[in-house]
């Protein structure tokens, strides 16, 4: 499946404090080098397979977010990075905050953390692609794909686990298993250089 080997990423900062954005950019650096998995940050919704969203949603950023999501060609996946994108985080009771990204667009994978670690972001992308693969397999076998159930929100603020958490109910176990098998090993070479 070539999609798994060539995920092109679009990064959108909703109303983020930029902590998670810096971690996304950190994963492009030689230390983490996401390009070794074929992951490229393309900055163009029409090229993108995966939408990386950071930060909580407010009415203004919601418009741009939906616009970007609609411009992405199928099959596509949405990954939320950080606590704010998952639940609203520390901003959850601000007057202008709608809540997590899933209040605006369907979300496939949540990467927890404040900010999320680059390893967890890479893990999240790989996990989301596993999910896309399942969707495609389901579509190919002719099964009418039911609209996804509204995902549960993450409740892991304050912790920073290393891996991404997949919260969707349907066949979550199988996907998680498939994704953990494909999970990338931690980068070694750049680490030694540092």
């Amino acid at each position: 499946m070539s999609l798994l080997k060539s995920p092109w990423v679009l990064h959108f900062s909703c109303t983020s404090c930029n902590g998670c954005d810096i971690e996304v950019l950190a994963s492009l650096t030689p230390l983490y080098d996401i390009e070794r998995f074929g992951i490229l940050n393309k900055g163009n919704p029409k090229f993108a397979d995966v939408l990386l969203v950071t930060g909580a949603v407010n009415p203004r950023s919601e418009r741009a977010l939906k616009n970007l999501y609609e411009q992405m060609p199928e099959p596509k996946a949405v990954i939320v990075i950080g606590s704010c994108g998952a639940t609203g985080g520390v901003f959850h009771d601000c007057y202008n905050i709608r809540g997590g990204v899933d209040t605006a667009i369907p979300v496939d994978v949540y990467v927890p953390g404040c900010p999320a670690r680059p390893e967890a972001i890479i893990d999240g992308v790989v996990k989301a692609l596993g999910l896309v693969k399942e969707k495609l397999a389901a579509a190919a076998s002719g099964a009418a794909s039911a609209p996804p159930a509204p995902p549960e929100k993450g409740d892991d603020e304050g912790e920073a686990p290393a891996g991404a958490v997949h919260k969707e109910k349907a066949s979550a176990g199988a996907i998680d298993k498939a994704a953990t098998e494909k999970a990338p090993p931690a980068k070694s070479e750049g680490g030694e250089a540092r």
Binding site: S6, P30, G38
Partner: peptide, 17 residues
């Protein structure tokens, strides 16, 4: 750039994707 870099067949995967 002192990175590992993508596999040499990466353009091939991109094309089929």
């Amino acid at each position: 750039q002192n990175r590992v870099g993508p596999p040499i067949l990466q353009p091939w995967y991109d094309f089929w994707k």
